[in-house]
Amino acid sequence: MNLTLRIWRQAGPDAPGSMTTYQVSGISPDMSFLEMLDTLNEELITRGDQPVAFDHDCREGICGACGMVINGQAHGPERTTTCQLHMRHFRDGDTIDVEPWRAAAFPVVKDLVVDRSAFDRIIGSGGYITAPTGSAPEAHATPVPKEAADTAFEHAECIGCGACVAACPNGSAMLFTSAKVVHLNVLPQGAPERAARVRNMVSAMDAEGFGGCTNTGECATACPKGIPLPSIAAMNREFLRAARG
C-alpha cells in the first residue's frame, strides 16, 4: 500500500506545531498502524530527519499508551487501540491525518506524545482502596454479588488511554473518572471510602482543567474498552449521594 500521511509535528511543549506531509510506500495491509509509523520513522532516520515521536508500550491493546487521533477519531476508525488497528482498514492511496490528543489537561510533549499525568493525579486522589497489602486474601472471605462483580470488571477494563478526553468536545475526563469510581464503589472493599472517593476524584478532575460533561456520548463511542455512557450517570449518582452526606 502507498499512503499519504499528514502528521502533527511539534518540536517541544512550547514550540509551534503544524501538519507535515509524508509519503510511505510498501505498507502491508497486515501491519498495525504503529508498525506503519515505524516504517516511516526508519525512513526518516535514514534520511537524517527527526523521527515522529509517539507513545507505545505493550502493542497488544492492554496498556493504553498508544494514543493518537487518526482522521479525527481517537485510535482511528476501528473501536480498538492504535496498536491493534491494522492497515487493512485503510485503502491504497489514502491520505491519513494523524494528530495528538487535544485537551488543555493533556499538553503536547512532542509530536504525537501528550502528557497524561493528569490521569495519574486523579487516580492518586482516590482511585484505590486504603488497605494493608500483603499476601492475597482468601477469595471467599468477602462475598461479592455476581452483578457487582460484573459491573466492577466491566469498569476495571479502562486502560487510561485518554481516548474519552480526546473525543470529547469539552475535553472532559468524566468517563475515565467514572470508570474508576464505579469499579471501586460497587465492591464491598471499596464501600468504606465510597463518598470520599467520588468527592476527591471529581474535585481532582476539575482541578486539572478538564471540561464538564454535556452528554454528547463521544467518549463512550471512542472508548476502546467499551466503558458505557451510563457509567457517567452512575458516578453522578455517587457524587450527589456523597454531597448530601
Binding site: 501538519m19 487521533v69 477519531q73 491525518d97 470529547c168 468536545p169 471540561g211
Partner: peptide
C-alpha cells in the same frame, strides 16, 4: 470552562 478545556481544534474535523 468546556471551551477552555479544548483550546486547539483538530485539523481533521468530523
Amino acid at each position: 470552562r468546556d471551551l477552555a478545556a479544548r483550546p486547539s481544534k483538530y485539523v481533521h474535523q468530523r
